[in-house]
Design a binder for these strands. Structure first.
Lengths: 343, 343
DNA sequence: AACAGCAATGTTAACGCTACCATTTTGCGG
DNA sequence: CCGCAAAATGGTAGCGTTAACATTGCTGTT
């Protein structure tokens, strides 16, 4: 019967549980952490007290002494635009399973300043590790400069050689090659490209592969449109390309959104897809399979990617030497590509 | 010249800064927190020491004594499928501005168990407040049962009367009414609906409004398809409806994805949109404006919604009585709706 | 029956910060 | 030049946990 001063309402602590169970707080800790040796009888008493008092271990106190917050910071750049950000959901789920908390910062633009601010935000919080999506050279540079001790997985198609940081991404080159090979295999000799924003690695790589594939096949470079991954510019650029004399027989869209715009541009001009024009996309976004016509595209397996990211991250946290393979995309063949008409 | 035992590497603490600046740690605290009274000269010394040592205030220690983690937990249900989850980006940005950290849990399914687990996860972490997206009755019930002391904004179209919790959502009813009015105004007398998963409030409401609007106009109920918000079922259900005798002249899609499926179904059957069939969607997802034809739809202003959510949340944290208005959606008129053909 | 040796439990001291109160310094009117 | 209020600074006690070590209570061996 301990008399308690009727203090302010305060959640129960280990000591409260200890008193209720008639043991020391250390014993409570042993039960809670499942470590150490405790008699079944003692454990039962403690568990009962815990249940009765609705005890929860205080994360702050724990973090204070262990110097571990069990938190992972995730920095999302250009969050909603490109597909890869949905990878985040996978990361989060996996992390929670592993007992981590996931904090997020989603950036409107992946500028140096924004990245820097976000990294600082997380360092203030004391995250154990970070995942940073760095789509551009600038953001990648800021990231590598900003992360210091903190283990970090950088999701980027750029190059990273810095101890403690590991780069991870889809094999953009392989994906783009697949798309181009598919078009070339269907006999297309004049292939346009709708590029994403050219400050992004992914857009650069996809465009470079388009050029190289054409050159390798001994073909002249096709028309190029540049956009922002989105459908609006996909439409206007595609329209411009298709209205020009000598229009291409195929379009390689840098994203499904851009390809979607191309589909409509063709429709508006009375060009039939895939009979008169083949279109291929990149991402396999939701709904791509129900476009008119269903879009052939390159799929990126976000689930696998998320898992890989988190695997690398936990490895890094535990101080292992981490090397990760790139994740391979795959081709989803639907109905927007057909053999080129022999002239 | 204090002699330091060459201990393990440890981030500098307030005491370290204090020693370096020749003041007490209390003074350092005053500078760091910007509270209390400090001479400009002292402040400069302290700031210099902070810069030199790369001092960062330890969030865990601070949380321990203040009992405030400055963290908001966000629970996302069915994250990637429906539009509303992208609201999260807005919430996050705003919260970070306000000095909060945002932790996320994204649920595959909004079942009682998942919601419960996520809420517990956040309570373990000691979040100051939560945002829970509860699309279904089941998840809403679990949410209201699970949140206890923690202030909580529930994003749901369901009903919430519980002190400490406040419901917030788009005015689904207004949105659906707009869509139906638009169709009715164009003279459509036979309107089908492609509903979302019927365990979700939003799907229920949109369907109910569809029914009611028809009844109010003195029209018989039109054909109904039920799906999962996605394009695949949108296609098959729309196709079924359009192949039946007495096909409707308009389709009200529960989501843009479903409407997208309907667009293709019509195309496959040689039904021209909007000449022979009007289609309207809901969400205004990216790309909707570039479909064939560009989709007329109901837009939900996610930015405003995110802001409203966070406003309510901070109010709740500070113990104010919070009542929030629903956010009104708006109609985006494009090209998929035309006057009904007079038979 | 005594005692090593181990299992079970308890004691104590940080961890780095804020809150509260005590003390020192400063400015200024008389 | 004193005194006194106000401003500036310092001292100390927790917050709730873990970690290292100390102690107690058993078991089994000789």
């Amino acid at each position: 019967m301990t008399r308690e001063p009727a203090g302010v309402k305060r959640p129960p602590s280990m000591l409260d549980v200890a008193r209720a169970a008639g043991v020391s707080h250390t014993t409570v800790a042993r039960v809670v952490n499942g470590a150490g040796t405790v008699t079944a009888r003692t454990e039962a008493k403690v568990l009962a007290a815990i249940g009765q008092l609705h005890y929860r271990r205080n994360a702050a106190a724990r973090a204070l002494v262990t110097r571990q917050t069990q938190t992972i910071g995730v920095i999302l750049a250009n969050s909603l635009l490109s597909g890869p950000s949905s990878m985040f959901v996978e990361i989060e789920r996996k992390a929670r399973d592993l007992g981590y908390w996931v904090s997020v910062a989603s950036l409107a633009v992946a500028s140096s300043e924004e990245i820097d601010a976000a990294i600082n935000h997380f360092r203030d919080q004391g995250v154990d590790a970070m995942v940073v999506m760095a789509p551009t050279k600038e953001s990648l540079k800021a990231t590598l400069a900003g992360i210091d001790e903190t283990p970090c997985v950088v999701v980027t198609s750029g190059r990273v050689d810095q101890p403690g940081a590991v780069a991870l991404n889809f094999d953009q080159e392989a994906g783009a090659k697949m798309a181009m090979a598919h078009l070339l295999d269907h006999g297309h000799r004049s292939i346009a490209h709708l590029a994403g924003p050219l400050d992004e690695f992914d857009a650069q790589i996809r465009m470079a592969v388009w050029r190289k594939s054409l050159a390798k096949a001994g073909l002249p470079e096709g028309p190029l449109g540049v956009g922002n991954w989105l459908a609006d510019l996909g439409y206007s650029e595609a329209r411009r390309i298709l209205e020009a004399p000598d229009r291409p027989t195929a379009i390689f869209g840098g994203s499904d959104q851009m390809a979607l715009g191309a589909l409509r541009a063709a429709f508006d001009l009375g060009i039939k897809v895939p009979q008169d024009l083949s279109v291929i996309g990149f991402d396999d976004m939701p709904g791509s399979g129900q476009l008119i016509p269903p879009l052939t595209t390159v799929r990126q397996d976000l689930t696998l990617m998320g898992e890989t990211t988190l695997g690398a991250l936990t490895g890094l946290i535990e101080g292992e030497a981490v090397t990760v393979a790139q994740v391979k995309p795959s081709l989803v063949v639907r109905a927007s590509v057909a053999p080129a008409r022999r002239p």
